[in-house]
Simulated scan of single mutants.
Amino acid sequence: MLLVKTLRGMEYIAADHIREKLGDVKLEIRPSGFLGLIIVHSDEIEKIKDIPEIETIIPIKIVCKADVDDIVSKAEEIVKVAGEFKSFAIRTKKRGKKHSFTSADINIRLGAKIKELTNAEVDLEFPEKAIYVEIIGDNAYIGVIEGKEERRKYTPEKVDSRKLLSKISLVQMPYLEDISAAKEMGEKIGRSAQAFEVKELVIAPFGYVNAYELEAFIRGVRRGQFSRLEIQKKAYAREVREVPVYVQDLYQTARDKRRKNNILIVTDPVGKQIKDVKDDLKRDLKYADEVVVFMGSRQGIPKGIFRLADYVIDLAPYITFATEHAIPASIIALISVYEEVEESTD
């Protein structure tokens, strides 16, 4: 038996394709009325793996009542099905509100029993075996997947980009044109800076600027940052860092940031391509205490700042970025370079 998960509304389309692959197979579409589910009465998982409407396939080996004691009583069968393993995780999905137990209840009790039987360690991040307990109506469907086959956002082989992001300071010239445009652009800048959780964002005008346009830009930054921050708090299981935002004169910022073990980067079309500076840049990104990235807006960074910069980089030759694209383009380019140096030192 297979438990197939799809996006909501895609169950019948997926079911048609499953029948094309498996023939006249028994299917339970939306069992107990739950969207995004199909129970396939077949074990031929390989034949349906390439159906794009299918999000996840769990091979079900045990079916029992949706009762904690009954589920825990199946621990020995689960261990037999799973084979040898040194670490495991219980993934429980409980649907409906009528049950007297929670997903956590199953995770704790079943996990404790399996640990007692195998002496294996619980590893929620990178287990050798992932044991799925899918509660659908009155039944519990239990299957085992190899940990390496799980689609996980964070895996050991991925470079943790936060190591670099935590030392990047963004120096952004404000977008000043009219109050409405300034506020709109500020929202985009604030959202981008918060999305990457960088060390800080410095809004850096120079000379005389319109106070009300600058005020609108800063209000926009705060609004964009706050909206992204709220999304991050819901999306991440970890604590989210709110990016500090400062205002300082552009030239003074360049002087202050030019310190030992800091590197200053200006993004500008007159600069060199990343491939021409990548070897030196990799080393500097790894060992720098702070990576300071200067970005223009309606007008570019003044050329005098270039003399204080360690790197002037053209991120996309023959292309001029829109102001709101400068932050993500710059950071993604730096992460790509940083990944190379981290992988070479593993």
Rank of each mutant, 00 (worst) to 15 (best):
V25I: 10
S32A: 15
I78K: 06
G23E: 09
V25Y: 06
I13G: 09
A66G: 07
K21S: 14
V72T: 07
F34E: 15
C64T: 14
A14E: 08
D50E: 13
P59G: 03
G23M: 05
H41P: 01
V72F: 03
K65Y: 10
F34S: 10
I57V: 11
E44H: 11
L35D: 15
E44P: 01
H17T: 12
C64N: 06
A14C: 03
F34W: 11
A15Q: 06
H41R: 13
K74F: 00
I51Y: 06
G23F: 06
Y12V: 08
K49C: 05
I29K: 02
I45P: 03
D70L: 13
I54Y: 03
I18F: 01
T56F: 12
K49H: 09
V63F: 00
F34N: 14
L27A: 02
K80I: 01
D67H: 05
I13H: 11
K80R: 14
G33L: 01
I45T: 09
E20N: 13
L35I: 11
L27Q: 02
D69S: 14
A66S: 12
E77M: 06
V63H: 00
I18H: 00
F34V: 14
I57Q: 01
I48F: 03
I45H: 06
I54V: 09
I78A: 02
D43K: 12
E77A: 05
K21F: 11
S32I: 12
I51S: 05
I18C: 07
D16E: 15
D69W: 04
L27T: 05
I62Y: 04
A75L: 07
S32Q: 15
I57T: 02
D70F: 10
D67W: 04
P31E: 08
R19H: 07
I60Q: 06
L22V: 09
K47W: 03
K61L: 07
E76H: 06
R30N: 15
D24K: 13
I62A: 00
K61A: 13
F34P: 01
D69A: 13
I18L: 04
T56H: 14
L27G: 03
A14D: 05
S73D: 15
S42I: 08
A66F: 00
E77G: 12
S42K: 05
V25R: 05
P31I: 01
E28P: 00
K49G: 02
K74E: 13
Y12K: 15
S73K: 14
H41L: 10
E76N: 09
I39N: 07
V25G: 03
P31V: 02
D50H: 10
D69E: 15
C64E: 08
K49L: 13
I71V: 07
A15I: 03
I13R: 14
D67Y: 01
L37V: 09
E20L: 10
D24L: 10
E76P: 04
E76V: 04
I18M: 08
K49W: 08
V63I: 13
A66M: 06
A14N: 04
P59L: 07
F34T: 13
G23N: 00
A15C: 00
D43H: 12
V72C: 07
G33M: 03
E28M: 10
I13M: 12
H41I: 03
I62Q: 01
I78V: 08
V79L: 04
R30V: 10
E20H: 09
